[in-house]
């Protein structure tokens, strides 16, 4: 079991009182799975992803990545885990505007080795997401969809075991969306585990044998089919 959540609960204080974003969620994702969590906006999908990625501390319950409880680790080990095991694709592009496209892609490698050593791989990833030749541009010169593709290239630069993706094809046109999904498919075939949250049933439908989950009002249930 690569990702394992048990009785995960996360609440937030809101003006109207306590809001339960994630309510006693249990989830098990095997190595090599392509798991899609469907749900409407505000159903708690992004919060669940943050909990799994070790970005947010749950009120109760556990998250285990490769058998290690996220919140039994100190900050340093958690950061190392995020850096080495997980590639994040956020709901928005989340690039650093003052870094070039290539520098953004190389950013997660700041600690592993000299980033220049992985430059060819970064260039290859940029080619694969259709941004060959744009490596020296600043993000401000790219469209929203192009920025999203840079973020996708960045998520793969560390050769992670897990990709946590939040609406990864949200801003993309249909052709680019297909290209990106094909890339996901390729990496998934190579053994990378995907956990994707989306409200788009189309994204789920394009993958071969995805595991489907439905998130509703903070609770999660597995679906047998769309």
């Amino acid at each position: 079991m690569l990702i394992e959540c048990e009785n995960l609960v996360k609440t937030y204080r809101a003006d109207a009182g306590i809001f339960t974003a994630v309510d006693r969620v249990n989830l098990a994702v095997n190595r090599g799975d392509f798991a899609v969590i469907l749900g409407h906006s505000g159903s708690g999908k992004t919060t669940l992803l943050s909990l799994i990625g070790g970005l947010t501390r749950p009120d109760s319950g556990t998250v285990r990545i490769d058998g290690v409880d996220n919140w039994q680790q100190d900050d340093a080990d958690l950061a190392i885990m995020r850096n080495r095991k997980i590639g994040f694709i956020f709901q928005f592009a989340s690039l650093i505007p003052t870094l070039t496209v290539l520098e953004n892609v190389l950013l997660p490698l700041s600690f592993a080795s000299r980033p220049e050593g992985d430059r060819p791989y970064a260039m290859e990833l940029l080619e694969r997401v259709g941004l060959g030749g744009r490596q020296d541009d600043l993000p401000g010169r790219l469209s929203g969809g192009q920025q999203r593709r840079v973020a996708i290239a960045r998520s793969f630069i560390n050769r992670p075991e897990i990709i946590l993706a939040d609406e990864p094809t949200g801003d993309l046109d249909e052709a680019t969306e297909k290209e990106i999904l094909a890339i996901f498919h390729d990496f998934n075939k190579q053994g990378v585990t995907f956990l994707v949250v989306t409200h788009s049933r189309e994204l789920a439908a394009t993958q071969l044998n995805p595991r489907l989950f439905l998130m509703k009002n903070g609770t999660l249930s597995e679906m047998s089919s769309l």
Binding site: D75, A79, N83, S94
Partner: peptide, 12 residues
């Protein structure tokens, strides 16, 4: 925030 998500630690 982005740097921390990508694996940077507070001391970094």
């Amino acid at each position: 925030s982005i740097l921390k998500i990508l694996g940077w630690q507070t001391p970094d």
